[in-house]
C-alpha cells in the first residue's frame, strides 16, 4: 500500500466525505429537476380545475358560444374539433403510411431517398404557424376552399404527416428481417410481403404514432387561426365546406376577452380539451404496451 492511503473500511478521509456530500447534492439536484416538470404539470391542472370546474356541466357541452358568459357552451367547438380530427386522420394516415412503406421497404439507397428523408425531418421541425401561412395561401386563397373545415383539415394533415411518417418508419423498421426473408422465401412479391406480414406486425406501432400525432393536431390553434377558423360560431359544420371553430380556438377567444367572466369558460374548455387529449394518449399508450409485449 502506498503511504498516505487509509486501508479499506477505515473512517473516510475529509476528501472522501466531501466527495460523498457532493455526490448526494448532485443526485438531489437531478431528482429535483426531474420533478419540476411534474410539479408544473400539477400546478397547471390545479389552476385550470380551480378556475373551470364549477362552470363544467351538460349545458356547457351542449350549448353554443354566446355573448353572455353564463349561457356559453362549446358545442360548435367540440363538433369542429371532431370533424377536423376525423378528416385529418382520413387524409394523413394513408398518405403517411404509404410514404413510410416506400422509404423502408421499396426505396433504393440513393440521393433521392436521402433527400426525401432529410426533407421529412426538416418538415417536422417547421413551426406550426408556417403551415398556417401555407394553408392560407394554398387552400384558402389558392384553391378557393375558403375558411372551411376542409382547408383546416388539409393544413393540419400537412402538419402531422412528417410526424406520422417518421413514427410509422420506426414501427416498420422494428419488424424483424427474418419475417421478411421467410415471406420472400415462400415466393411472395414485395407487396405481398408488406401487405401480408410487415404491415400487420407494424400496425400497433403505426397506430400509436398516428394517435399521438393527431392528438397534437387537436390541440393546435395557430395554423387554424391562419386558415380562418372563427372564435364564435352558433352552429355546427354540416359539410366539409362549412366554416368552423375548434376547441383550442374557442378557448383562445375566451382568454382574449377583456371581461373577467369569460375566464372560467376558457378554463372549463381547457378541462374538456385536456380530457380529450388524455383519452387519446391513454389509448395510444395501451396500444404501444400491447405492441411491445408482442401480440
Amino acid at each position: 500500500m502506498r503511504p498516505g492511503r487509509a486501508p479499506l473500511g477505515a473512517s473516510p478521509s475529509a476528501f472522501d466525505r466531501a466527495r460523498r456530500t457532493k455526490g448526494r447534492i448532485f443526485a438531489f439536484t437531478c431528482a429535483a429537476a426531474a420533478f419540476v416538470g411534474v410539479a408544473s404539470l400539477g400546478a397547471l391542472l390545479v389552476d385550470v380545475i380551480a378556475d373551470g370546474a364549477s362552470r363544467l356541466d351538460l349545458a356547457f357541452l351542449t350549448g353554443f358560444a354566446s355573448r353572455f358568459p353564463e349561457r356559453s357552451g362549446i358545442r360548435a367547438a367540440l363538433a369542429g374539433s371532431v370533424w377536423l380530427l376525423v378528416l385529418t386522420a382520413l387524409i394523413s394516415f394513408p398518405l403517411s403510411v404509404a410514404a413510410a412503406i416506400h422509404l423502408e421497404e421499396y426505396a433504393p439507397r440513393n440521393w433521392v431517398t436521402r433527400a426525401i428523408q432529410t426533407n421529412i425531418a426538416n418538415l417536422a421541425g417547421v413551426p406550426s404557424i408556417v403551415y398556417g401561412i401555407l394553408g392560407l395561401a394554398l387552400f384558402v386563397r389558392g384553391l378557393r376552399l375558403e375558411r372551411s373545415v376542409l382547408s383546416g383539415a388539409l393544413t393540419l394533415s400537412l402538419l402531422v404527416m412528417p410526424v406520422i411518417i417518421m413514427s410509422a418508419q420506426e414501427a416498420i423498421r422494428a419488424v424483424p428481417s427474418t419475417i421478411r426473408e421467410a415471406a420472400y422465401g415462400l415466393g411472395a412479391t414485395r407487396w405481398q410481403v408488406v401487405r401480408g406480414q410487415v404491415l400487420p406486425m407494424a400496425m400497433p406501432g403505426i397506430l400509436t404514432g398516428t394517435i399521438l400525432a393527431l392528438s397534437r393536431a387537436v390541440g393546435e390553434t395557430a395554423p387554424l387561426i391562419m386558415v380562418g377558423a372563427v372564435g364564435f360560431l352558433a352552429f355546427t359544420p354540416q359539410s366539409v365546406m362549412d366554416p368552423f371553430t375548434v376547441l383550442p380556438l374557442q378557448i383562445y377567444s375566451w382568454i382574449s376577452r377583456p371581461q373577467e367572466e369569460f375566464q372560467p369558460l376558457a378554463a372549463a374548455g381547457i378541462i374538456v380539451l385536456l380530457a380529450l387529449l388524455l383519452t387519446m394518449n391513454a389509448f395510444a399508450i395501451v396500444l404501444r404496451n400491447r405492441a411491445r409485449s408482442g401480440g
Binding site: G37, L44, S215, I251, Y252, I255, L278
Partner: peptide, 23 residues
C-alpha cells in the same frame, strides 16, 4: 416520470398561455 413528461409535451400551447396569464 417519462409518461408524465410526455403529457407535459402534449399539453396544447393555448393551455400554457392560459396558465401563464392566470398563474
Amino acid at each position: 416520470l417519462k409518461p408524465l413528461l410526455e403529457i407535459l409535451a402534449g399539453v396544447p400551447t393555448v393551455v400554457y398561455g392560459y396558465f401563464a396569464l392566470t398563474f
